[in-house]
Amino acid sequence: MAAFLVRRLLQSVLVVLGVLVLVFTLMQLTGDPATLMLPDNASAQDVEFMRRKLGTDKPLHLQFIRFLFGDRVLGEKVEERVVEHQFMSSVVAGRIREHRGVIMGDFGDSVRFIDQPALPIVLERFPLTPYLMAVAFAYSAGLSLVLGIASAVYRNSLLDQVLRALAILGQSIPNFWLGLMLILIFAVWLGLLPAMGSGSIEHVILPAVTLGSAPLGRNVRLIRSCMLDVLGADYIRTARAKGLSELAVVVSHALKNAAIPVVTIWGLDIGLFFGGAVITESIFGWPGMGSLIIQSVYKRDFPVVQAAVFFIGLAFMLVNLMVDLLYAWLDPRVRLAH
């Protein structure tokens, strides 16, 4: 287990580095961020200053080191100064300050929220995303478990056939369209639930159902086939033979042994939810990290995009790590196989 743990942790470090490279490269793809952010009539001095602020006056490898560890590592001292920024179509005054490096949680200053550091903006929006994901997960896991088991226990019945058809259908419905349809049905036609915003319990229902429905069809199919494998086993016949009720057989004997692949796929779902949340939050105006990313993309507020993308990458990595460890703990074959 120790060897597995070390190898897996090293892999995680590699992933974090990879995400950092990606986030850094994103900024490079813009060409020259300094001219992008400054007004057209900016003086050459301002352009030079902005390049220094962003570090784009240096060779690429030094830029990356500065991005990670800040100005000080390169032995530079940056005096504070105010420079005119281009923000959308207007010109605003912006502060230039020392960059302390991603390692200190400094992703630079937001463009949209002038001079506010990017990371706190992201952190402020962060809790609403896991909240939405948790509700989505509870819905998705609970419903797929019930439907999957029902489908397996009553296999080839009408119920099973209907559920299987629905599962395939559900797998094909684009998530964001489902969101629009839920708004149409439950908010517009029935008037039962609010379509937008956050604040009350009712607000979370439609976004959570939208987000949680993405893996639902696949999970019902998976749980069904896992349960079918297990229900044919000898120990299930034994359990029935000794007179256990069908419910006890299914729940305490069959389900327990079908759990490993199901737990794995649930772990992967949480990862999927990070991506899905970006779209779902935008549809429902849910003020989490996902909608923050989209809004920041619209406003070309790249420091915030970088910080949020990094944060999601980090959270995604942590979830994957936990799932793998859980899996290795549940099933010794995994850690011995490598």
Partner: peptide, 15 residues
């Protein structure tokens, strides 16, 4: 180890 849609959004946002 990175959500596909987020990767696509970030790259398209920039290029």
């Amino acid at each position: 180890a990175f959500p596909f849609i987020l990767l696509a959004i970030s790259v398209v946002a920039v290029i």
